[in-house]
Amino acid sequence: MHEVHERILARAEELAAEAPVSDELGRLSDTTAEILRSSGVMRMLQPKEHGGYEADPIDFFRAQLEIGTRSSSAGWVAGVVGVHAFEMAQMDPTLQKEIWADDPDTWIASPYAPLGRAKPVDGGYVFSGRWPFSSGTDHCQWIILGGLITDADGVPVPGGLRHFVLPRADYEILHDTWDVVGLRGTGSKDILIKDAFIPGHRVFDPVPMEDGGLAEQVGRGDSALYRMPFHPMFTAGITTATVAMAEGALAAFVAAMRDRVTARGVKTANDPHQLAVLGRASADLAAGRNQLFDDIEQMTEHARSGERFSPEQRLTLRRNQVRIARRAVNAVDELFLHAGGTALRSGSTLQRCWRDIHAALNHASNNADPIYQAYGLNLYGNPTPPTVLF
Rank of each mutant, 00 (worst) to 15 (best):
T186R: 07
D170Y: 09
T186F: 07
T186N: 11
Y171G: 01
V203Y: 04
R168F: 08
H175W: 09
D195A: 13
K194I: 15
L174R: 14
H175L: 13
H163K: 11
G200C: 12
F197R: 03
H175P: 06
L161Y: 15
T186P: 03
K189F: 08
G200V: 11
L166A: 05
P199G: 12
H163R: 14
G182F: 02
W178G: 01
H175R: 15
T186Y: 08
K194F: 11
L166W: 01
I193E: 00
L161N: 13
D195N: 15
E172H: 12
E172I: 12
F164D: 03
R202K: 10
H175Q: 10
R184N: 06
F164A: 05
I173L: 01
K194H: 15
G185V: 12
Y171P: 02
L192V: 13
I191V: 13
F164I: 09
T177S: 00
D176T: 03
P206W: 03
R168M: 09
I193R: 04
W178D: 05
H175T: 12
D170V: 10
G182S: 03
D190C: 12
R162A: 04
H175E: 13
G200M: 11
L161K: 14
F164K: 01
P167L: 14
P199C: 09
R184A: 01
V203E: 02
I191Q: 02
V203Q: 05
R168H: 09
P199D: 12
V165E: 06
D170K: 15
G182K: 05
V203C: 02
S188Y: 05
S188F: 02
G187H: 06
F204P: 10
L192R: 13
R184H: 01
R168C: 03
